[in-house]
Design a protein around this nucleic acid. Structure first.
Lengths: 201, 201, 201, 201
DNA sequence: AATGAATGAGTCTTCATTCAT
DNA sequence: TATGAATGAAGACTCATTCAT
């Protein structure tokens, strides 16, 4: 039973993983489209091609879907930031600004989901606090590597400002189409100016 | 008669006017506290010290409260911007940045409400589009008054960026308390740097 | 006070009567248009150009409007039937049939109102029972005047059948327009045939 | 699959089918007893021994129950008329009258429901128009088979009159008990006389 | 494990009726 | 007397979650 069919459960697990991914994607899409509250568990199941019972097999509550989605975003964001940290020390102000903007561009889809959830699921903001704190800590660290003269508090404040600009990247990216002028380059400039001011100003 | 409170039946007696104001304030507070969807009509009425029927006497639907609130914000924002426009031409980059930040600080409470509604009431984003457009148009105009050499598209893009920073002011203001360092001054700096770059850069 | 201004209250009474009539007409129209349940007290007042408070000054409840309307119909129907009774004895079967159809044509509008109310206000059917009974009694009497040989029960049954056909007159009259053929003449024929059968058959 | 129960989600399991039937019966009974508007969704569910949520699982709105009921009546009436059509050509005027009366007697329960709904659900009258038209068309056809000399318009008008008498059958049947004399035989006579007049007169 | 029916608390909204001015 | 605001019980409908097959 164990050696005879070692991979017997593989397809099942495989299928289960696919199910979970589909369900998560369906939830993500719907949460962005219509908001957390307006999205129905039945809808999520339907879009994933699953029965409502199946959805509850994997996610015991609506909030657990939100949790999973936030976790997914956190993991991806963390990894992306780690990759960025390696290249950051060598970068100029403008280079750093670009990296940060590009980071958000990469995380854009996930970020939209998290934004939608932050409003509706009170818990999410709370849960994300340490992550956000860590995120800013890394940015502050980068700043202080570039200029050790910047004191901790100043670096922390600057990191918050930088995070704020980064947060607007998905929104700006969405407006690209309708706006007459290119917004992202302006965001890069704004960020570069500010970083430069913090480091060399 | 007045264009205020669309969809809401205008009260004809003094008592009714007070009721409407109370109801609106209760709604605003609750929407910010728990979000649009999580706020109950019954709760709004209760907080305003009114019966549910009284609430519906003036606001025929939950959405009509949102509408009224958005309209109120739009009116106040428009007025505030108009006042700012008078003083703007004479200001330096830093002065202009300060004015804009202060504008948002003044509108902060209303802005928070509108932000909460924008997420949940699909219609709100749509309705606000022209207002937002006009708002940015004014900012772009200010930039081009300061430096007529800036072309229209560039001014428009810069205005969008500036609006974005302004939008974050209420959030930053809320964080002042918990953050180790003062955020608002940093926002002023960031904005001043950028405006200066657009005008003189 | 009494001799000096004897007609002082006349205009008031006059106005009051007009009010009541307007209110009743508004109610009648709306009950027919949308049914008793779907009609709102507020609507009735509005259509009559009165405030909701005024409506309640004259009619203490929604049902009291229905009552008044039914009473009005009963009175008019009774009067009309009395007039008919005078001419009935001398009429032929066809003549009698015509009179009965014409009677309903005359009462048509009021009948429509009563029909609408009968469905919704349980009380109305009950209240109208004696009137309906009397109405049929008169018709049965006419039949027995025409042919005293018809026994009471047979006359009563025939009267019920005749009333049934009469009841359909308003409906048929409404269809005249859209129907390709004239319905009322057919109703006259059907009734004449049946009356003739009862009396001479 | 089947055309039955429009608007109602078809149950997929046996249990669901039974539920739908029970729910429909409960609705029919209550609509007749107290009228459409006065009947509560909660009551319907209760009488069917179901939770309010179960009711909504299959009938998304109160009106959808009315729709389903009307559809059920239409189907049954159509079938019954088709059966009648086979025997009609060979019948005498009296025989035909009897068949038509018996048809309504058979459909009596369903007809009562539809009558109750016609008043309250505006849509019902509209939806039934084509069915009613077809129904009359069949009756007109029967008349013209009996006597091809009857022109189309005359047959149509006569069919409407016949339908009118048929419509009163359930009412008459209900009155049998309280009335002193038998009404149904009189209805048969009235109809026979009229049909005979149309065909041979 | 998968499916779809069952459940019922909770929400928005309506409206007849009453009150205060 | 006339007016319009106030009231709250009641009803349609939703949806997260649980169960039975």
């Amino acid at each position: 039973m164990s050696t005879a069919l070692p991979e017997a459960k593989e397809p099942k697990r495989e299928r289960g993983k696919q199910r979970v991914a589909d369900l998560l994607d369906a939830g993500a899409a719907l949460f962005v489209e219509k908001g957390y509250d307006a999205t129905t568990m039945t809808e999520i199941a339907a879009r994933a091609g699953a029965a409502i019972g199946s959805l509850y097999q994997f996610f015991p509550s609506k909030e657990s879907i939100a949790d999973a989605l936030v976790t997914r975003y956190t993991e991806r964001a963390t990894k992306a930031l780690e990759r960025l940290m390696e290249r950051a020390p060598a970068a100029s102000s403008a280079g750093l600004a670009d990296m940060l903007i590009d980071l958000m561009l990469e995380l854009r889809a996930d970020r939209d989901v998290t934004a939608a959830l932050s409003q509706a699921v009170a818990d999410v903001v709370e849960r994300r606090r340490p992550t956000r704190h860590a995120f800013r800590g890394r940015i502050a660290a980068i700043l202080r590597i570039a200029n050790p003269g910047v004191d901790e508090d100043a670096a922390a404040a600057a990191a918050t400002m930088i995070a704020m600009v980064m947060k607007s990247v998905p929104v700006l990216a969405d407006q690209e189409a309708e706006a007459a002028a290119p917004l992202l380059p302006q965001a890069r400039i704004m960020l570069a100016l500010y970083i430069d001011h913090v480091i060399h100003g």
